[in-house]
């Protein structure tokens, strides 16, 4: 089987999420990559070094610069004439583009796969990960998104892919990019952080979140996450949300502070290696998945913890 993997990038760097998708695609067959963007030659060269990669198709055009699904999907659909599976990481870009490709090809997408069980058989989470479905596709071509935490990352060195320029339909004239608000941060990105400190509604305000959570995260070199309630209340930006409908994370250590542990939150973090929960309510559901629990007032316990580490 010949697969075409969507390379997630910002026109400068290959994003980590790509590497898990490459591993998943490798279980299906030959791995080809698609680098679509504007002035993205550097990304293509880096992508060619990913272990196990065959051809790297580069589509360089202003119309692809911001990965607008309306412009990218027809390009992918055209390239799929020569591939059997389109594989994208389940990032917001992947989730935006892949279903549009699937509809153009008249196939059902298989969303957020956890494992490859056969040529056309996969497992995927449903009901916020409270059930795992095994599904088999009857479609001639496959369109798949891959859960990043479920597959090892392919090595970024050692490959010798062949870079080849491709072109296709360009600006569909349906949409245009206006602007972006991307927070620059030195902190590890949530989906690849080894340690995550997450705060919930209990923090009470953006100032308290910053005052209590940030120093602990700094001390541990951790990424910062949050529950939906903390995001909705405006303590932190939307991209901090961990959960069923936010980011799926699986760090070595996840520290949940003032988070109750609703199923929607657990869906995003319960595959973490070690979970620590700090909550003043001993009956909080978060304790049912925590390896270590501390029943305490976070405003006392967390500063003390930060100091003693």
């Amino acid at each position: 089987m010949k697969t075409l993997v969507w390379v997630e990038h910002d026109n400068n760097h290959v994003a980590d999420a790509t590497l898990a998708a490459v591993t998943a695609a490798g279980k299906l067959g030959e791995v080809h990559l698609l680098v679509a963007g504007e002035n993205c030659g550097g990304v293509a060269d880096a992508a060619a070094k990913i272990a196990g990669v065959g051809k790297v198709h580069v589509a360089d055009d202003a119309a692809y610069g911001h990965h607008l699904a309306e412009n990218i999907a027809p390009l992918v659909a055209e390239l799929m004439g020569d591939h059997d599976a389109f594989v994208a990481p389940a990032t917001t870009t992947g989730k935006n583009v892949a279903p549009r490709v699937a509809a153009l090809l008249d196939v059902m997408q298989i969303s957020d796969i956890l494992s490859v069980e056969g040529d056309k058989t996969f497992t995927r989470p449903i009901y916020a990960g409270n059930a795992i479905a095994t599904v088999e596709s009857a479609d001639a071509k496959l369109v798949i998104t891959v859960r990043g935490t479920a597959f090892e990352k392919a090595a970024t060195e050692g490959g010798s892919g062949i870079v080849e320029a491709v072109s296709g339909p360009t600006d569909a004239g349906l949409s245009s990019f206006v602007s972006e608000e991307i927070a620059e941060s030195d902190r590890p990105e949530l989906t690849s952080a080894k340690i995550i400190v997450s705060g919930g509604r209990a923090l009470g305000s953006g100032e308290k979140f910053e005052e209590v959570i940030t120093p602990l995260a700094d001390k541990l070199g951790a990424g910062i996450g949050a529950s939906r309630a903390a995001v909705d209340a405006g303590y932190v930006p939307n991209d901090y949300q961990v959960g069923q409908t936010g980011k799926i994370v699986a760090p070595e250590l996840y520290i949940a502070i003032g988070i109750s542990g609703a199923i929607q939150h657990l869906a995003g973090m319960k595959d973490s290696k070690t979970i620590v929960a700090i909550n003043k309510d001993e009956d909080a559901p978060i304790f049912q998945v925590a390896d270590y629990g501390l029943v305490a007032d976070l405003f006392k316990a967390v500063p003390e913890l930060t100091e003693k580490l």
Binding site: T92, T93, S175, F177, E180, E181, A183, N238, D239, K247
Partner: peptide, 11 residues
């Protein structure tokens, strides 16, 4: 709402 923050598009 995108992974890194927010993106505005016009359709």
């Amino acid at each position: 709402e995108i992974d890194g923050g927010l993106q505005t598009v016009k359709l």
